[in-house]
Amino acid sequence: MNRPLLVLTTALAPLAWGTTYLVTTELLPPGHPLFAGLLRSLPAGLLAVLLTRRLPRGTWWAKSVVLGALNIGAFFPLLFLAAERLPGGVAAAVAGAQPLIVLVLGALVLDERIRPLAAAAAVVGAGGVALVVLGPSAHLDLWGVLAALGGVTATGVGMILTKRWGRPRDVGPVAYAGWQLSAGGLLLLPLTLAWEGLPSEVDMGAALGYLWLGTVGGIVAYTLWFRGVQQLPVIAPGLLALLSPLVATTLGVLVAGERFTAIQAIGIVLAIGALTAGQLLTRPRMATRGEDHESAKATASALP
């Protein structure tokens, strides 16, 4: 797959995730975000494993649990805590810092050189998101900010490890996403039952919302996302993640009738310009770090 097409298909994931806020507020029962996260991950993950008939082998059992915990199992509870203690705009603004987190982690873990222009794009992108989502009534809560930072850091570390470990040579992207969704969903299951419980009623609108989150926002989005993370330079998908709060804000204006200001328009232009520049500034090389270290060592030992 050529790079422009890979970038576009990877961008479909944060575009889909940007619909989560509207679906949650308009269709789902209130007060059950963890249950929504559970239905977004576990059924889709188990279905993917069932359809592909591929289970992890060897060290990939542990790796799948780690990746599923970081990308899904840890992210949703921390997101829930941040949403409880912060206005939505503040939480989204903190999430806009993820490209910077990924940039630093990529340098530390993957030895990817930090390019000044890429770092500048990450800073501008985070600032653009802040202009879009922050309002004059925004207030900070220490634990809420820490939870939001913890959530984006968990997914940032998950991105880095996804790129570092790759995936087994004989395993496709659907099965690979299914492992992580299943692992993350199984970790969410006891948290959901102990913390929230089940909704008292699920109507047709809620059922359609859960179906959307589990299919388009779940297995489809995560399959495209993990493939892009593995093949693109690490900052590229990090910047594409900025699309999620931008889509959420746009849908709020178009569907929910929320106000849209000139400052928000400037923020959208800055964020889109930053994420576009980030794709152009990164190297065209799309090689991963190998399927996993065991496969790489085996290949190397077989060479003369």
Rank of each mutant, 00 (worst) to 15 (best):
137 S>N: 13
97 A>M: 15
147 A>I: 05
144 G>H: 04
144 G>Q: 06
159 M>S: 14
159 M>A: 12
100 L>P: 02
144 G>T: 05
132 V>M: 10
69 A>F: 09
128 G>Q: 11
142 L>T: 14
125 G>N: 01
110 L>K: 11
67 L>N: 12
69 A>P: 05
86 L>E: 07
106 G>Q: 09
74 A>E: 03
122 A>P: 12
128 G>S: 12
138 A>Y: 04
127 G>Q: 09
122 A>M: 08
73 G>Q: 10
153 T>D: 02
131 L>E: 12
127 G>C: 10
98 Q>K: 09
90 V>C: 06
151 G>T: 00
131 L>D: 08
92 A>G: 14
141 D>V: 06
78 L>Y: 06
103 L>G: 02
84 E>Y: 06
81 L>K: 06
75 F>R: 08
122 A>E: 02
159 M>F: 14
68 G>W: 07
145 V>K: 00
77 P>Y: 08
87 P>M: 05
113 R>V: 13
100 L>H: 00
129 V>E: 06
155 T>F: 06
104 V>Y: 00
133 V>Q: 12
147 A>Q: 03
148 A>F: 00
143 W>N: 12
147 A>M: 05
119 A>S: 10
70 L>K: 11
114 I>L: 07
85 R>M: 11
71 N>Q: 13
160 I>L: 15
72 I>D: 03
152 V>G: 01
107 A>L: 07
132 V>W: 04
143 W>M: 11
145 V>W: 02
92 A>W: 10
103 L>I: 05
96 G>A: 09
160 I>T: 15
100 L>N: 01
112 E>M: 07
140 L>M: 12
67 L>P: 02
144 G>K: 03
130 A>Q: 07
130 A>V: 03
80 F>H: 14
154 A>G: 14
119 A>N: 06
72 I>N: 13
99 P>F: 01
155 T>Q: 12
161 L>R: 08
147 A>E: 10
137 S>V: 10
149 L>H: 03
106 G>D: 09
129 V>C: 05
80 F>E: 13
150 G>T: 01
104 V>A: 15
156 G>L: 01
68 G>D: 10
67 L>R: 10
86 L>N: 12
146 L>E: 03
146 L>G: 07
153 T>W: 01
107 A>C: 07
114 I>E: 02
116 P>R: 12
124 V>W: 09
114 I>M: 14
72 I>C: 09
79 L>F: 13
119 A>T: 02
83 A>Y: 09
113 R>N: 05
156 G>K: 02
150 G>Y: 00
149 L>N: 04
73 G>T: 12
126 A>R: 02
134 L>P: 07
85 R>H: 13
101 I>H: 00
115 R>T: 04
69 A>M: 13
130 A>L: 05
152 V>Q: 06
123 V>I: 15
158 G>N: 08
128 G>T: 08
96 G>E: 06
87 P>S: 09
104 V>N: 04
78 L>M: 13
112 E>Y: 08
118 A>R: 15
112 E>G: 05
84 E>M: 14
119 A>I: 06
161 L>S: 06
96 G>Q: 09
106 G>H: 03
67 L>C: 12
131 L>Y: 09
133 V>T: 15
110 L>H: 11
125 G>W: 05
152 V>L: 15
161 L>V: 05
160 I>Y: 01
85 R>L: 15
79 L>Q: 12
75 F>I: 06
